[in-house]
Design a protein around this nucleic acid. Structure first.
Length: 478
RNA sequence: CGGGAAGUGGCUCAGCUUGGUAGAGCACUACGCUUGGGACGUAGGGGUCGCAGGUUCAAAUCCUGUCUUCCCGACCA
């Protein structure tokens, strides 16, 4: 194992922001485009997104959701119907005002989110309680006129899925909201190996137009939080604004209960900032587009045959395996495999063959292991190793998150933590928005969520000292 | 949107102070030789110096404007 770090990558502990963009570039996940604030998803980055899509999509379908596609553009009148929503989004909506060389009579909004289109669509198609629920999802991109942009974390156009459902009862809609939240949370834990936390947003932080917002929050390597997915309960707010009514069981008109939920390409950013290191990208095996790369050392016939043999076996067992048969030097290929975050590398060279060996290298720890091919079942061996990488990435991230989770009993204490070693800070809050506002004055500190699994740290609000019921997790955020 | 920094072959940058018509390393192409932690040799291709205007006999260099990117804040997935 060599200690020579990747030349193109700034050290994570020296300059985290630079490190992040260096990894994005070195692993060829994305590059800047001529369009301000919009990135090009390169094959390596898009492949991760496709993998995320396929996993989440099958989970949505298992829970009876269907995919649809609604237009990119919406008339202004439609967007304005729900006043909280338009107020929340007004500063970041982009408008189409001209078609060809003709000025439009009514300008069209480019969707920043599609509650309005879904609501209008539902209003026109729902007649009876028998039509409910409607469980729709769409994969698309949305546009928000962001001022400060960063690859994956915040760009003007980003990829996401937005689910929009309507239900007969409040209970069903609330169950849906939480069902999806749990799907997201499981996805983070099981696939992304990110120990996320779920909870409810405060009134101040909830989605514009929602009754309540639930969130998946994760903590990055540098102690900054990332809102990673959200699920909203709308009650009847949009139903009333858009007239989504149906004839109920007792033959009177009722307004539907609604939810929406989304997860975006921002998750790629989370993946980078939780697991990757100074050698480049580190991907959990379950989300990696490629699990194994075989590097032949010397392209002799024997070596190449062996490489292809293993590639075939592994691919047949659904372990995506590629061979790097470029004529670069071996050392270059090793580094490249590391930058790209491929979980396992198999080195096969004449020396290995002579001893009936192959060399296995895991990306997360960079440990090398020589195994005798007569002693092992290669598929079992690789599967075990992949599983071990997956769990150890999760455990490592969890230990780090726990180490960076603090408790504060006074504003002073909270401030000290944020200034010296940011992370999740648990503190009691009375529920008064004024107190929340005051806490926000501490350099970028915001409430992340009221966690579902709450501890009672003390009886008093950290800010005003009044009686407090809720523990809130506070953090600086992306 | 405030404060700072930077834009020169694909990438990282030098040249700018003191104007004279563009360089290095890496990458790329061909051939050869190689491959166990970012090899080597030979030959080759590629840049209206972000863009626009101005000053000047002459601008990568000076001036003005503008765009983009990065960092730090405010605002947001």
């Amino acid at each position: 194992m060599s200690d020579i770090k990747n030349k193109e990558i700034t050290s994570r502990d020296v300059d985290f922001a630079k490190w992040y963009t260096d990894v994005v570039k070195a692993a060829k996940l994305a590059t800047y485009s001529k369009t301000k604030g919009c990135i090009i998803f390169e094959p390596n980055g898009y492949a991760i997104w496709e993998k995320m899509q396929s996993i989440l999509d099958s989970k949505f379908k298992e829970t009876n959701h269907q995919n649809v596609y609604l237009p990119l553009l919406m008339p202004e009148e439609l967007l304005k119907k729900e006043s909280d929503l338009i107020q929340g989004f007004a500063p970041e909506v982009a408008w189409v005002t001209q078609g060809g060389d003709k000025q439009l009579d009514e300008r069209l909004a480019i969707r920043p989110t599609s509650e309005t289109l879904f609501s209008d669509y539902y209003a026109s198609t729902i007649n009876s309680y028998r039509d409910l629920p409607k469980l729709y999802n769409q994969w698309c991109s949305v546009l928000r006129w962001e001022k400060e942009t960063r690859p994956f974390l915040r760009s003007r156009e980003f990829l996401w899925q937005e689910g929009h459902t309507i239900h007969e009862t409040e209970k069903e809609a609330m169950e849906e909201t939480l069902r999806i939240l749990n799907i997201y949370n499981d996805f983070f834990h099981e696939y992304l190996a990110i120990p996320s936390i779920i909870g409810k947003k405060t009134e101040k932080e909830k989605f514009a137009g929602a009754i309540s917002t639930y969130t998946v929050e994760s903590l990055m390597y540098n102690g900054i939080a990332l809102q990673s997915a959200t699920s909203h309960y709308f009650g009847q707010k949009f139903s009333l604004a858009y007239g989504i009514k149906f004839l109920g069981r007792n033959n009177t008109y009722e307004y539907a209960y609604q939810t929406s939920w989304g997860a975006s390409s921002r998750m790629i950013g989370a993946l980078i900032m939780v697991h990757s290191d100074d050698y480049g990208l580190v991907l959990p095996p379950k989300i990696a587009p490629v699990q194994v790369i075989i590097i032949p050392i010397k392209d002799t016939i024997e070596v190449m045959e062996k490489a292809k043999y293993y590639q075939n076996i592994l691919n047949q067992h659904n372990i995506k395996t590629i061979i790097d048969n470029t004529d670069k030097s071996a050392g270059y290929k090793f580094s490249q495999a590391e930058v790209n975050g491929i979980p396992i590398r198999i080195e096969i060279g004449p020396r290995d063959l002579a001893n009936h060996n192959i060399t296995l290298v895991r990306r997360d720890t960079r440990e090398k292991e020589n195994v005798n091919i007569n002693d092992i079942d290669i598929v079992d061996k690789i599967n075990n190793l992949l599983e071990d990488i997956q769990t150890s990435l999760y455990n490592k991230a969890k230990i780090r998150r726990d180490e960076m989770t603090y408790e504060a009993r006074s504003l002073e204490e909270l401030k000290n933590i944020m200034e010296n070693h940011p992370g999740f800070v648990k503190a009691m809050w009375c529920g008064n928005p004024l107190c929340e506002e005051k806490i926000k004055e501490i350099k970028g500190t915001k409430s992340r969520c009221i966690p579902f699994t709450s501890e009672k740290i003390s009886d008093h609000c950290i800010c005003c000292g009044k009686k407090a019921e809720h523990e809130v997790i506070w953090a600086m955020q992306y």
